[in-house]
Design a protein around this nucleic acid. Structure first.
Lengths: 150, 150
DNA sequence: GCTTGACCTCAAGTTAGCTTGAGGTTGCAG
DNA sequence: CTGCAACCTCAAGCTAACTTGAGGTCAAGC
């Protein structure tokens, strides 16, 4: 507990975070993680990377893709252990995105409520499926999901 | 406007719903859609399939995968135009799923709020990332997302 | 009766987020 | 100094949800 700069192996990082070793390596190729190397070419991570990965996991649950998460993480100092302030800023950023998502869902639910009365689900009669809402979701890639957990 | 049993081509269905022709064909292979064929082997859909697709789109926004959506749609009569009651039941089913998702997100936000104070984002200190919540998300496949719309 | 556009099938490609496997190296314990 | 788990790099595979392309058919207008 002397300092937070101890180096840990990828296996240790995996155990500490519950994330598979292969996933960690993948994150590194994606630029979400950086590592030092031993003379024998093995990765060594900062202990603070555990937190970094916690953030990644949380952000994923909130629906961010790895690319977006990387953008968020860019606010953190590279290679240096982030301060409490650093993390607070990130948390705030995430929080506002969370708020937006909750609002969107709530709006959808309200529309659905209005629709249950008529059972129509019609594009023209209902506001439930709003074409304008769809404009943002262009191109292929992952679709809308929120935790199939449970 | 005499009856709802008019048959429409795949192109018309695509235009009416905003869904690509290729996607509609894909939905058919997945069993979400059924079609009749003309003597020349072209697909003909029921007009009521427009509504069916509206439902698919809505359910997708709520985070259901096509497989889950198919399960939901199984409640509808095959090949026959569904009644208002049929749709109402489906809407109710979807609504409860929506409620669950909103609750999950809200819970997450509350945890995040508690965490902003300390900025820790630590697996051990924070409840934000709860390992138990993760148990349900086994195996590969789509990850947690909610509309990158915006 | 010919052209044109909508339609058909089937195979392969795409993106995200990983996992799996092959084939080889490192590092610590005994 | 040997054994073996943990590590390394690539390349390929997987799922979801589609799209794209090749190569061919159908139907309606002129």
């Amino acid at each position: 507990m002397v300092d937070g700069n101890q180096l840990i192996s990828i296996g240790t990082l995996a155990k500490r975070t519950g994330v598979a070793v292969s996933a960690l390596r993948y994150y590194e190729t994606k630029g979400l993680l950086t590592s030092l190397r031993t003379s024998g070419n093995q990765r060594r991570f900062l202990r603070s990377d555990i937190r970094r990965i916690s953030f990644i996991l949380i952000a994923q649950r909130l629906g961010l893709g790895l690319t977006e998460i990387e953008r968020e993480l860019a606010a953190l100092p590279q290679g240096r252990t982030p301060t409490v302030k650093d993390w607070q800023n990130l948390s705030r950023s995430i929080r506002s995105q969370l708020d937006a998502k909750i609002e969107l869902l709530t709006k959808t639910r309200n529309r659905l409520d209005g629709c249950i009365g008529c059972g129509c689900l019609s594009l023209t009669r209902c506001k439930l499926y709003n074409p304008e809402d769809r404009a943002g979701a262009a191109g292929p890639g992952p679709r809308f999901v929120l935790g199939s957990a449970g």
